[in-house]
Simulated assay, not measured.
Amino acid sequence: MAKQSRAQGQKPMSKKEKKNKRRKRKIIIVIIELLILLGVLAWIWVNGKMDKLNTDVSFKGQDVRVELPEETQEVLVEYTTIALFGLDNREENSYSRGNSDVIMVARIDKETKEVRLVSVYRDTFLKMADLNNTDAYSKANAAYAMGGPEQAVRMLNTNLDLDIQEYVSFDFSAVAEAVDILGGVEVEITNEEAGHLNNYCVETSKVTGKDYTPLPGAGTYNLNGVQAVSYGRIRYTIGDDFKRTERQRLVVEKMVDKALASDMSTINELIDVVFPKIKTSLSKAEILSLAKDAFNYKMGDNAGFPFDRENEVVSISYQKGSQDCVIPADLASNVKQLHDFLYGTTSYQVTDSVQSISDEIVYRTGVRAKKD
């Protein structure tokens, strides 16, 4: 009866009200259809952009892994760690071999989105992690030349107690293009740096096919692509390769800051022009997962590895001659510092494997850990 009285009390809808209701329903349906269409178009756009990447489908992350204690793995899983290799190649799109004159470890905190960079000095004397010659030691940059990105990543994991399973490789041209699209990077240059930068610009311009203007001397300049790459190549000032890696990290920081402040048209151009000039083991899904937080990333501290080293380069004898190398003093104590810097593990204990490598480097070079 209550139900019946309520029904009797309701006023029947007029034709106009029914028409408006149908119209609202149609509008909602159209909006939903538009949202679905936009989602499909966005998916097509993103996939089209991702197809521009040189994806290394042959790279197998498990083939570069080393055995690590469970407690170490539990810490590392809270971060994304990627190896970055800048190749000193004169041919574009050549990523399978070559000396990696830029070796960086990029660590992203999954929670805070803070990014930290560590440059591994290219001349650092380390174990090569060569599966065909397990006793091979050489400069860090030789690993990529010997066995491509797979051996280079395995070399980092083997010597540093890391679990890197992804890499990104690039050459001069990729960096020069990116800097130009971003409108340059502002850097303070000394008079000595200006002279060396101008000299490097000659070759960098030929390799990239891009123009530059020589710098007149010391000052603060907005460097274009050729100039920024050449700045990152300077190694003949006080500090040698140690100072050079500082310059490289500074250029990367400036580029990241510019990219984060860029509009979508600039980002779109970066993707179109730069993506074809890099190679990576990251899948589309992994890149999209990283990209969704891109504008939340913030640059943290950066450093060079090894932190403690022999003051002078040491000449290491080989069957075919000798090489001037940077010697960690010693590797084990430096790896402890690395895990503290990247992952906040203040009481890190190196694995037996890294301790063994550290002892071997001491045996071969005579360089020991520095006393407090």
Results as ranks from 00 to 15, higher is better:
residue 33 E to M: 15
residue 62 Q to G: 01
residue 92 E to Q: 15
residue 22 R to V: 11
residue 39 G to Q: 01
residue 40 V to K: 06
residue 96 S to P: 03
residue 22 R to P: 09
residue 42 A to D: 05
residue 89 N to G: 11
residue 60 K to S: 00
residue 32 I to W: 09
residue 56 D to K: 02
residue 5 S to A: 14
residue 22 R to F: 10
residue 56 D to M: 06
residue 24 K to M: 14
residue 30 V to G: 14
residue 31 I to T: 14
residue 89 N to W: 07
residue 77 V to P: 01
residue 64 V to C: 03
residue 73 Q to H: 02
residue 14 S to L: 04
residue 36 I to K: 08
residue 29 I to S: 14
residue 11 K to C: 04
residue 54 N to G: 04
residue 37 L to Y: 04
residue 94 S to M: 13
residue 42 A to H: 05
residue 97 R to N: 12
residue 97 R to H: 14
residue 31 I to N: 10
residue 63 D to G: 02
residue 24 K to I: 15
residue 62 Q to S: 11
residue 58 S to R: 03
residue 50 M to G: 05
residue 83 A to C: 08
residue 92 E to G: 15
residue 28 I to M: 12
residue 53 L to S: 07
residue 83 A to T: 07
residue 30 V to D: 11
residue 92 E to P: 08
residue 68 L to W: 01
residue 11 K to P: 02
residue 60 K to M: 02
residue 20 N to T: 15
residue 34 L to V: 13
residue 58 S to H: 06
residue 35 L to S: 10
residue 17 E to M: 09
residue 74 E to Q: 13
residue 73 Q to M: 03
residue 91 E to N: 15
residue 99 N to H: 13
residue 33 E to S: 15
residue 45 W to G: 07
residue 88 D to Y: 08
residue 20 N to I: 13
residue 67 E to D: 12
residue 52 K to D: 06
residue 84 L to V: 13
residue 89 N to R: 15
residue 66 V to Q: 03
residue 46 V to G: 11
residue 43 W to C: 07
residue 73 Q to P: 00
residue 36 I to E: 09
residue 35 L to P: 02
residue 6 R to V: 12
residue 93 N to W: 06
residue 44 I to N: 09
residue 33 E to G: 15
residue 93 N to L: 12
residue 28 I to R: 15
residue 63 D to V: 04
residue 46 V to F: 12
residue 18 K to W: 08
residue 68 L to D: 03
residue 19 K to F: 12
residue 77 V to S: 10
residue 6 R to A: 09
residue 45 W to A: 14
residue 39 G to K: 04
residue 35 L to E: 08
residue 70 E to D: 10
residue 31 I to G: 11
residue 80 T to H: 13
residue 50 M to I: 11
residue 60 K to E: 01
residue 26 K to H: 10
residue 9 G to E: 09
residue 86 G to T: 10
residue 27 I to L: 12
residue 63 D to H: 00
residue 40 V to W: 05
residue 48 G to S: 12
residue 11 K to L: 01
residue 58 S to I: 01
residue 47 N to P: 09
residue 51 D to P: 05
residue 85 F to C: 10
residue 65 R to F: 00
residue 61 G to I: 02
residue 29 I to R: 15
residue 19 K to T: 13
residue 7 A to Q: 06
residue 88 D to S: 06
residue 48 G to C: 08
residue 31 I to P: 11
